[in-house]
Design a protein around this nucleic acid. Structure first.
Lengths: 137, 137
DNA sequence: TATTGTTATACTCTATAACTATA
DNA sequence: TATAGTTATAGAGTATAACAATA
């Protein structure tokens, strides 16, 4: 699989650009939605943890959390065991917004999928588990 | 293909985040590399054309081109037939940088692909043409 | 002294509005 | 008057350096 890797990278890059222009319900930025997805999937966590997980700097994450808190998508709560630290939690409003964004993106991609030939749809469906393992590795 | 669309969106989102953290040779931003990829693939074009193609505003593209010109990746040349317009051309330096970035990303994704089971690699290879049609539609 | 988080500062990226030059 | 591009201005996103409070 030598040349196919090049094609795969091209496809993934184009997919990125496609998604970047999709929806963005309620002014959700890429940085904010990535952090919210993680907080929803992995639960509340500290600024430092979130910064590491998102490959961002600690000050950068402080600022992102500040903007998300201002929008009402997350909440800071002091840690009981360490008074220096805070825990970032997704609010119901933040969770709702992410659900809407997900639905919008699913609709948009679904429309594109509907435009494919049945054989193409089948090939993509068959490759999904493999692709999931690839992007999670 | 109802539930698979949801999975497909998840996979594409994760692929985006994965690529976002890959390489970025020589300080290439996502916006710059997307524009450079297009200019290399489709040839020199005007600011307005490039702005439309990249789904950006005209002033935004003027500024991106200004930054890329300052880095030596592109060149502005006046249009012979319309003295209001300019043509944006990729320099050899810009093309070299994109080639390096592409190689780095191909290596990184190739390493991930090598970690998959042979059946997974085959499934992804089989789906590539379909995925290419999807992201180009 | 080390760690958690914030503030200060600077740069990229992006948009809308106002402007200049040419058509 | 319409179009091509630029300039002005503002806000998001991000980084490093300097700082505060707590461990």
């Amino acid at each position: 699989m030598k040349q196919p890797v090049t094609e795969l990278v091209d496809v993934l890059e184009q997919a990125s650009r496609l998604l970047r222009r999709l929806s963005t319900a309620g002014g959700l930025s890429a940085a904010a939605s990535s952090a919210l997805i993680r907080l929803i999937r992995e639960g509340p966590m500290r600024i430092t943890e979130l910064a590491h997980a998102e490959a961002a700097s600690q000050p950068g994450m402080t600022q992102l959390v500040t903007r998300m808190e201002r929008e009402g998508w997350v909440r800071r709560t002091p840690c009981a065991d360490d008074r220096r630290a805070v825990t970032v939690t997704v609010t119901p409003e933040g969770a709702d917004l992410m659900a809407r964004r997900r639905a919008e993106r699913t609709d948009a991609v679904g429309a594109l999928v509907d435009g494919l030939a049945p054989a193409d749809r089948a090939a993509i469906a068959a490759a999904l588990p493999a692709l999931a393992r690839l992007v999670n590795s």
